[in-house]
Simulated scan of single mutants.
Amino acid sequence: MEPTVPHKKPSGISRFQFENIDAQTLSEHYARFSTGVLIEPLTRRKGIAIEGSHYATGAFQIWSGTCRFGMQAKLLEPPEVFAIYLPHAGGFDVYTGSQRHEYGPDEAFVGDLSTIERIRFQEGRRHTAIAFGRSLVTKQLCELLDTPVSKKLEFSAKLDCSSSAIRRISMASALLWSSLANEPEHIASVKFTEHLFQSLALLLLAVVPHNYSVNLGRPLSPAIPRQVKRAVDFMVSNVSMEITIGDLVRECGCSARSLNAGFLQFKGISPLQYLRQIRLDAVRKDLINAKNQSTISQTAQRWGFTHMGRFAALYRQAFGESPSETVRSSGMRLPRP
């Protein structure tokens, strides 16, 4: 039995080779490299006998291998990543709470690993899997939409491997794998590899259903005018400060009428409405942040809201719930004012 053998590529890409390793060795690998995962064999007499390879760089990972005798992976510290499992043989089951989701040898999994408690791989299971950091995929979504997103991006799909979406993802994955599965001196640069991963993440957003698919399906706008872009940049940089339409006009070097027309055409709302939405999104993000120790009113004031009654009404209008309901649903307990 040989342990996990790590190789650090000259480009900064980490490579791990598995040759007939056992459950303890694989658990230790995850503990060193990723998040806490407890690997257990389905049949203790047989073990797991994993063979395969694992590559990682930055917020991306890709691995491919075979589990000869089956195993179960308990996610002790569920990672904040989206993952794609492309099957080559065998099936596996995903457990979320009391629910069990079965995936056959011709069904691909696309989902959020932070929502999963354990995965059960059948004997002879063989697959290629790709993982993307949640924050990076969310950032790409914001860039595609040209606006911040207020709701958590959610993927949860069981897709037939014969579908157009999985065929396209499989082809892109094969290109990525072939750029990595070479001798160390021939490995592609980390920059090139990251671009391939990013392209695959964009393809994921484009072809796999998620809660922002409808937004992405809308026609793209032409190039945003310079004054609108400058106004947005100014808002983001000074979001907690008092900003008037006069401040925006001076910053952008255009008339109030021109600026308002640009926002209505390219953002669908007025400049000050856009500013308000940025602030509301920032408040909501803080309210569900486990590290936030401020009260609701302190959080609102930090992002430029001075009238609490007006703020509460705007917040409910934007998100369909009160600020306190957001806090309760996230499981947070903020200090009382």
Rank of each mutant, 00 (worst) to 15 (best):
M1P: 10
E2W: 05
T4W: 06
P6D: 09
H7R: 12
K8L: 14
S11G: 10
G12K: 07
I13S: 04
F18H: 14
D22Y: 03
S27C: 03
E28P: 00
R32Q: 13
F33A: 11
F33G: 09
V37E: 07
V37S: 00
I39S: 02
I39W: 04
P41L: 03
L42P: 01
I48L: 12
A49L: 10
H54C: 09
A56W: 02
T57P: 00
T57D: 06
A59T: 06
I62D: 05
W63A: 07
C67V: 10
C67S: 14
Q72F: 00
K74T: 09
L75F: 11
L75Q: 05
L75Y: 13
L76D: 08
P78T: 05
P79F: 08
F82W: 13
I84N: 06
P87K: 09
F92R: 08
V94Q: 03
G97Y: 07
Q99L: 12
R100S: 09
Y103C: 04
P105C: 04
V110E: 01
I116F: 06
E117M: 09
E117A: 15
R118N: 10
F121A: 05
Q122T: 13
H127E: 14
T128S: 12
T128Y: 01
T128P: 02
I130M: 06
G133E: 13
S135P: 01
T138G: 04
L145A: 08
D146V: 02
T147D: 11
P148R: 12
K152N: 09
E154P: 00
F155E: 09
C161Y: 01
S162L: 06
S164Y: 05
R167Y: 03
A174E: 15
L176C: 09
W177R: 10
S179G: 07
P184V: 02
E185T: 10
I187N: 11
A188L: 04
S189M: 05
S189E: 14
T193C: 07
T193S: 11
H195W: 01
Q198W: 00
L200H: 05
L202D: 08
L203M: 13
L203H: 03
L204M: 11
L204Y: 04
L205W: 07
A206T: 11
V208P: 04
P209R: 05
H210V: 03
S213W: 00
I224L: 12
K229T: 15
V236Q: 14
S237W: 00
N238M: 03
M241N: 15
E242S: 13
I245V: 10
C254A: 14
S255H: 07
A256K: 14
A256W: 01
R257T: 15
N260F: 07
Q265M: 07
S270Q: 12
L272S: 11
D281V: 11
D286F: 01
K291M: 05
K291E: 14
S294I: 00
S294H: 08
I296L: 12
S297K: 04
T299A: 08
R302L: 12
F305E: 02
T306S: 15
A312E: 14
A313Q: 15
A313G: 00
R316M: 03
G320F: 06
P323Q: 04
S324K: 10
E325Y: 03
T326K: 09
R328Q: 11
S330N: 07
M332E: 11
R333M: 11
